[in-house]
Structures are given as C-alpha cells and as structure tokens.
Design a protein around this nucleic acid. Structure first.
Lengths: 152, 152
DNA sequence: ACAACCTAGTTGATACTTCAACTATTTCCC
DNA sequence: GGGAAATAGTTGAAGTATCAACTAGGTTGT
C-alpha cells in the first residue's frame, strides 16, 4: 500500500475553509429561505430553473440534470411543490413517458419574492465579503471542478 | 420596496459555478465514503475532529461547534457511530451534565483507512484540478465568508 | 439557601433524501 | 415487426436532518 499524497498545510487550510464555510453558508440560506418564504434551497433551485426555461417548463429529466438532483429526489420535491400549487405537472405530447414540470403564476410570484431576499443574503455573506479577484478565482476553480466531475 | 442589487453576469457565473460544483462535489464524496467505508460525510467529519483532539475525545458541545453541526444532529449521529462501535460516550467528572465523545481504536482504524481514500478524492476533483493561486483565493474567500457568518 | 435563569445534552415527531424496485414507453437491431 | 435493452418517471422503505420540547445540572443574585 503506497503512502497517500496528503495535503500540505496551505492546501489543507483552503480545503477546510471551503468545507466549513460552504456548509455553514448553505445552512444559513436554507433556514433563511425556509423561514421567510417556506422554500428549501433545493425547492428554490428548481423554481429558478423553471423560471428561466422557455414557457417556464422543463421535462423532469432535464430539470433534474439542470439542478444536479437525482430523478427520485426531484420527483418527491416536485410532488411537494405541486401540493403547494407552485408547480404543475403535465404530460408530454411526443413522448408518452415524459412529464413536463411547469411553473405556475403563483410559483413565479413566490420565486420573485424569494429571489429578492436571497440575492441580498448571497451578497451579505458571499459576494460582498469576497475580493472580486478571488471571486473570479472561485468561478474558474469550480468550473474546473465541475469539468472534472463531468468526465468522471 | 427598493430594487434589489442583482448580481452582474460575472458575479453570477462565479456564484453558480460554486453552488453547482460544491453540491456535486459533496454528493460524490458522500457516496464515495459511504460505499467504501460505510461513513457519511458528517460522520467522517466527526471522526476527524475527535482524532485531532487531545486524548481523542471532546465534549459534545465543543464537537458540535467544531463540526458546525447542531447539537441535536450530533447527538443522533453519535448514537449511530456508537452503535457501530466507532465512538464511545462517557460522562464528565467536573460537569455532571457533560458528555465526552471518545474515538475508539476501531473508530481510529476506520478513519485512517477512510482518510487515505478521501484525500485522494479531494485531490482528484478539487486540489489537483485547481490552479494553486486560485486555491489560495478560495482559502481567503471562505475565511472571509466564515468571518461574516460568525459576526451575523 | 432558594428562586430564576442559563447551559448540556437527548428525545420524538416530522420532513427530506437515498436507494432499489417497479411500470410504462421508446429505441435498437436482427 | 418483434424481442431485448435502454430511458422516463414514480413509488415505498429505510436512513438522516430539523425543530421544538424536555430532563438535568449549574450559575447568579438576594
């Protein structure tokens, strides 16, 4: 068994800051969205993707890929969103297996309000506290991470 | 109601890369640790903190703060770890309310094996795909995020 | 010394995620 | 055109997280 390539002190410091910071940031945003708008982060993400799609609707599989969620999880989450009347499911003309998720007007309204608060939180605890050059570096770095995950 | 300060295109690109990348990275690591070593990420984190503490033990509250988890969550997770014999709970001499969580020898052995794999994953999908200067930037940036969360 | 308050930790109910199994439809390919 | 294999989506069970309520022990002030 070969000795693992442990991280050096500098790498470890960055890695740990990231792990801890992102964990706490996510929790804050989740609590925030939940208390003010009754949405979890993953519900919010789904509404965002739908709102940006043509006709505010997407096939389930596409939506799942878009939001980096499993199909099962999306299915459950959509059921909850549907019971809150924020999303409607409809069938797909060309593919009888297919299902469209469609953002309702109420869903759009809820999202609009939530987004206004959310962006303020994103600024307060992320964008505005990070040096713009470091923010660029984060963009580059995580794009590379995504690329490596895609080709995994 | 004032117009929110929306993110510009560059900021948004970084923010989204981070959100998506970190979500997917966490999921990969969770699945990886679970399949190879039967540990979830948060179980792993707890074992790490314990392994680094003097005498491999910590008070529950300290451990919770250390791992950025709620006390409730830690309590549940510890129960699971205890039932796997990786952690033991013991009472605290000075404070009768207090409970020590203590890493067992078996817990240490499991952690050692898991860490060897884990560091390899951290390298493959994070450290080694990121430019060292960008990695530094991540360290700076998330330290600032943590600071802003602390003073919130 | 005792009443009010604070801190440590656990518990149980509820909500959410994950995983494997399942149905229904479509695609491949001989 | 028909059977095997792949794809779309859902479901239920089991595992994990969150929240509020709770027990018990400590701290403070009079």
């Amino acid at each position: 068994m070969t000795e693992p390539r442990w991280l050096d002190a500098v790498q470890q410091r960055s890695w740990r800051a990231y792990v801890d910071g992102s964990l706490r940031l996510t929790e804050l945003m989740d609590r925030d969205l939940k208390s003010k708008h009754g949405l979890s982060i993953s519900e919010y993400e789904i509404l965002v993707r739908l709102s940006e799609a043509p006709e505010r609707r997407l096939r389930m599989a596409e939506l799942a890929a878009n939001a980096s969620q499993s199909r099962s999880r999306l299915s459950h989450t959509c059921s909850r969103l549907e019971s809150k009347a924020l999303v409607e499911r409809g069938s797909c003309p060309n593919d009888k297996r297919g299902v469209y998720a469609h953002l309702t007007d109420e869903g759009f309204a809820v999202l609009e309000r939530a987004a206004r608060d959310h962006v303020e939180t994103v600024r307060s605890y992320f964008v505005d506290v990070i040096d713009p050059q470091d923010l660029d570096a984060i963009g580059r770095a995580f794009s590379a991470v995504i690329k490596s995950l895609d080709s995994a």
